[in-house]
């Protein structure tokens, strides 16, 4: 066994003529927290969608927890232990908080296949526990997502990952719509994960947040990885990262991304 939890080799996704992601070689070690940065449209979310079974890759390999995987559906990825906060949040607007937290893996009282009877009470209780664990504050969990603010929706999506035990957590811009307090809360959730030794991929445009939270920064530019920066051990500044993002600099070994 190696200490690598996730590795991608030559991971590539083309949407017709759009080369959204090309030849991504990426490694995440156990317990490690890595940030992915890059401009809008750089391919960050595309990268996440290939790993989590939302879309099928054009080519390349994904090795998760020691074995090559090919998740057909997001459910397969979740079953394997990858919990994701998608940038689109993936919430059903007409349902309430417990419904959304348990969407696709409802707790049931009586198992009758598709007609299994829902255990609403247990789901409400677990929802309250998850909200407490994450410090997320929602005035009324019976409220439909449609009637919630952008920040509250994001909180629900984040609480969803905390409801279930996972081997890898991926958050795609989890604090984009959050206020100061809520952002601090999410950052605390991330720190909790770090202490628990759970690995994380964090996509963020917030330089301060990234430097506060993670061990390593991987920069995407126009669908390619153009830098891999060990910010904990090497002398890397915010300006350096910006230079890589904008293309002013390219790291040795990633010249083909220039």
């Amino acid at each position: 066994m190696t200490d690598i939890i996730l590795e991608t080799r030559d991971l590539t996704k083309h949407y017709g003529g759009v080369h959204a992601l090309t030849g991504a070689n990426f490694i995440l070690r156990k317990g490690e927290h890595v940030a992915i940065m890059g401009d809008n449209g750089a391919g960050k979310s595309t990268f996440v969608r290939q790993i989590t079974g939302v879309e099928q890759r054009t080519r390349g390999e994904i090795i998760f927890n020691g074995s090559a995987v090919s998740f057909e559906t997001p459910m397969d990825a979740r079953k394997a232990g990858i919990e994701t906060v998608f940038q689109s949040l993936a919430l059903a607007d007409e349902l309430d908080v417990p419904d959304n937290l348990f969407l696709g893996r409802e707790l049931v009282k009586v198992n009758l296949g598709p007609f299994s009877i829902l255990d609403y009470k247990a789901m409400r209780e677990r929802t309250m526990m998850a909200l407490e664990k994450t410090g997320v504050k929602i005035p009324n969990i019976r409220n439909k997502i449609r009637n919630m603010s952008g920040g509250q929706r994001q909180c629900v999506a984040i609480a969803r990952t905390a409801t279930f035990h996972s081997k890898l957590t991926i958050m795609d811009e989890p604090t984009a719509a959050l206020g100061v307090q809520e952002t601090a809360q999410v950052e605390n959730i991330v720190r909790t994960l770090k202490e628990a030794g759970e690995p994380l991929i964090l996509i963020s445009h917030n330089m301060r947040q990234v430097f506060d939270l993670v061990d390593r920064v991987v920069v995407f530019r126009r669908g390619r990885i153009c830098a891999n920066l060990d910010i904990k051990n090497e002398d890397v500044t915010g300006e350096d990262v910006v230079a890589y993002i904008t293309g002013a600099k390219t790291q040795a070994g990633y010249e083909d991304a220039a």
Partner: peptide
């Protein structure tokens, strides 16, 4: 209800 309210979200949630 989930599929009717947001089909993509339903798919991403594993339905």
């Amino acid at each position: 209800y989930a599929i009717g309210s947001n089909e993509d979200a339903a798919r991403m949630s594993g339905i």
